[in-house]
Write a protein that binds this DNA or RNA. Structure first.
Length: 710
DNA sequence: GTAGGGTTAG
């Protein structure tokens, strides 16, 4: 090494640890590549690393080891851009490098730089006999497997797995852990589990990887039970374990247990852990405590804010979500797409949010230049669908530069929710030309068919699932088909269809059958469905009320009473039905028989008049069909004061002619209100849009878009 | 010189 180089190195050294006044002590010996590497690895900030970068490479321009170390460091400090640029000018390993060491460093560097394709390319070169043909060792596999996981490339992953077996490293605990993580990311949970079960040595990372794999694939129960087995086996969880297990917690007691464990390990002041705890408690319905934890986070990052906003979205607290969002903006925090996704979701879910809210949020997205983000666009489509504007939804959909499965699926389900089955089907056919459908979009398209009465098309879709796409129907798909048959009045066929199911029918399937009996009353079949439902969901009040109403419509009043009594005996509480309407940017809520509104007097007078008018053109009150209703004896008058009717009349009184009336109900719309609304739309010439817990109903000129099936 | 990770659209 020349004197000049040594001076350069000393300068570089001083830029890490500046020594202001005294002359630097002479270096004990000239720096070897290895000691330069440890110098690089000692850098904890990009500011310290950059000056070293130049001098180290000037000293050792052809040293692959140093280049790779430098790149790893850049990657670790968060600049994969620099890492990749170092690696792209790094020399290739010499052809004689049969020692895997240099290859491993390079693999690690690419994996750390977030460049999985490069990692795999290096691995291929390493394994190529003409390029040196180094024999992999146990250090080789973790970065390569990580790259496969990153790319969700199971095929390559399995090939690398075979290599680990061939070279005798598949039982190495580091390799095993990497295999579990790789299979987990690739969605091959069972394979991950097999690797886990076969490992002779397991450590905390092994357990954590397996918990993470289960969690990522939606098997939260399994993840939790693994966590408990781990505790039973006296393996001490660490920070990563908690971060993996927290997303699986949905019960407050479980959350409290974890909270205690985390506190005992002193991890409760770690921001990542705190963010996850906010999410965990909001998932458990403890939104106030989640907020308490959020407020305690001293240095909040974007994920802290989005966890809390997401929590409010889940709790249907749109106002709080918006308030927090404003607070965040006031604090001068730059927002990102995840924050906006939270706000959009809060607005989509909320019964209280309006189309104006949607438009405000959309405008905000555009002003923040996030309207080209695929996820944001998709969320906006869903938002407009749920706020009743298919036109706006479709406009965003058409303007998208790129569409993926989720964006197609959202638009298809949007048409379905609005009863536009043929449009849903048309779009679905279009979609099949560019992306492969999955099980979720099949639920949307089947439900669109059943809502729109497209029987043959529904069958065709159902049959194509396995035949064309190899998608095995799940309970939801069977439920849609039962719906489809039920609409056609083919109750016996629906029952036989359930009997032939290769999987156990769940409550959605039986619920469809019971729902069908509401349209085509049949006591025997309704009882069959209800029997299973009362076992599967004894707390669901809607099922009892449905069965009782079916009995009533068949004239079996005694039976109806019996069911109501059963419900009372079991302590099942009815959910209070209410309807919401927005007038001049203010939200009004009506319960049945509500007189809280200042205009109540006017509303009831107008209601009386309106009911008389629609009676003259053929409306017959259907007291049998009073869903989610007050008690039996209140009969006809009670129908008049249903929250839907009160809200509609309030809307009519407070809007100009030609204005569309939009209302939202928290439960399924009542049968009698549905009939009445058709007549009201005819007699007033108004378009009335009703969103209930299931779908949208567009009433116009005496007809509803649902074709009287909902 | 190795492995596991928080918020994220249907």
């Amino acid at each position: 090494m020349t004197l000049r180089n040594a001076a350069a190195f000393r300068r570089a050294l001083h830029s890490v640890h500046p020594i202001p006044n005294e002359p630097p002590p002479p270096l004990p010996r000239l720096p070897e590549p290895r000691s330069s590497a440890s110098l690089l690895n000692g850098c904890t900030s990009l500011r310290a690393l950059k000056p070293l970068h130049a001098s180290v490479l000037r000293l050792h321009p052809d040293d692959l080891f140093l280049s790779a170390t430098l790149a790893s460091r850049y990657a670790l400090l968060g600049s994969s851009r620099h890492a990749l640029s170092v690696l792209s000018s790094a020399p290739p390993p010499p052809p004689s490098a049969s020692d895997p060491f240099l290859w491993n460093i390079l693999l690690r560097a690419f994996a750390d730089a977030g460049a999985p394709e490069h990692t795999l390319a290096v691995y291929r070169r390493m394994r190529d006999p003409s390029g040196g043909g180094a024999r992999p060792d146990r250090f080789t596999f973790p970065p390569v497997l990580k790259a496969c996981g990153h790319l969700r490339d199971l095929q390559t992953g399995a090939k690398v797995h075979r290599d680990t077996v061939e070279f005798g490293y598949c039982y190495d605990v580091f390799v095993g852990n990497s295999l579990i993580a790789m299979y987990g990311k690739g969605g091959a949970l069972e394979t991950a589990r097999r690797v886990f079960d076969e490992m002779s040595e397991r450590n905390v990372v092994t357990w954590t990887a397996m918990i993470g794999a289960s969690a990522q694939n939606g098997h939260t129960e399994e993840a939790l039970s693994l966590f408990h087995s781990m505790l039973d086996g006296r393996v001490r969880p660490n920070r990563a374990t908690f971060l993996n297990v927290m997303p699986c917690v949905f019960k407050a007691e479980e959350a409290d247990d974890l909270y205690k464990l985390i506190g005992r390990q002193g991890l409760d002041s770690d921001m990542f852990v705190q963010n996850a705890m906010v999410g965990m408690y909001s998932r458990c319905g403890k939104i106030e405590f989640a907020r308490h934890l959020f407020d305690r986070i001293l240095e909040k990052d974007l994920a802290s804010w989005s966890s809390m906003i997401e929590g409010y979205a889940r709790a249907d607290m749109f106002d709080e979500a918006l308030k927090l969002f404003r607070k965040m903006k006031l604090a001068g925090i730059l927002l990102d797409h995840v924050i906006l996704l939270g706000i959009i979701r809060a607005c989509s879910n909320s019964l209280l949010a309006s189309l104006q809210h949607a438009q405000f949020i959309h405008g905000f997205v555009v002003r923040n230049l996030l309207d080209q983000n695929l996820m944001v666009q998709t969320a906006l489509i869903d938002l407009y669908v749920k706020r009743g504007s298919l036109r706006n939804a479709r406009r965003i959909f058409d303007q998208m530069q790129q569409k993926n499965l989720v964006s197609w699926s959202t638009m298809v389900s949007g048409y379905g929710m609005h009863g536009r089955g043929e449009d849903a089907l048309k779009l679905f056919i279009c979609m099949k030309g560019s992306v492969k459908p999955d099980h979720i979009v099949f639920v949307s398209v089947l439900s669109a068919c059943s809502h729109a009465g497209l029987i043959d098309e529904g069958w065709q879709c159902f049959n194509s699932m396995v035949a064309e796409f190899g998608i095995v129907p799940r309970a939801e798909h069977y439920a849609c088909m039962v719906d489809l048959l039920g609409r056609a009045g083919q109750l016996k066929e629906a029952r036989e269809f359930i009997e032939r199911m290769p999987i156990k029918p769940d409550s959605s399937v039986w619920g469809s059958l019971l729902g069908a009996c509401r349209i085509h009353p049949n006591a025997e079949i309704a009882e069959l469905a209800a029997k299973s439902l009362f076992e599967l969901e004894p707390e669901n009040s809607g099922r009892y009320i449905l069965l009782s109403n079916i009995y009533t419509s068949l004239g079996k009043i005694e039976e109806a009473h019996r069911i109501r009594a059963l419900m009372r005996r079991r302590g099942v509480r009815k959910i209070a039905g209410y309807t919401i309407i927005e007038v001049k940017n203010k939200v009004y809520k009506f319960f049945v028989g509500d007189r809280m509104n200042p205009q109540s007097h006017l509303i009831y007078k107008e209601l009386e008049r309106l009911m008389d008018r629609i009676r003259m053109i053929g409306y017959v009150p259907n007291t049998n069909f009073a869903l989610h209703d007050v008690e039996e004896e209140t009969k006809e008058k009670s129908l008049y004061v249903h929250s839907e009717k009160l809200a509609i009349v309030f809307g009519l009184l407070n809007s100009g002619p030609g204005c569309v009336i939009q209302i939202r109900k928290n439960l399924r719309v009542c049968g009698d209100c549905h009939t009445a609304t058709k007549f009201i739309s005819k007699i007033t010439g108004r378009e009335i849009v009703v969103r209930d817990s299931h779908r949208f109903h567009h009433f116009s000129d005496g007809v509803c878009s649902c074709g009287d099936y909902w």
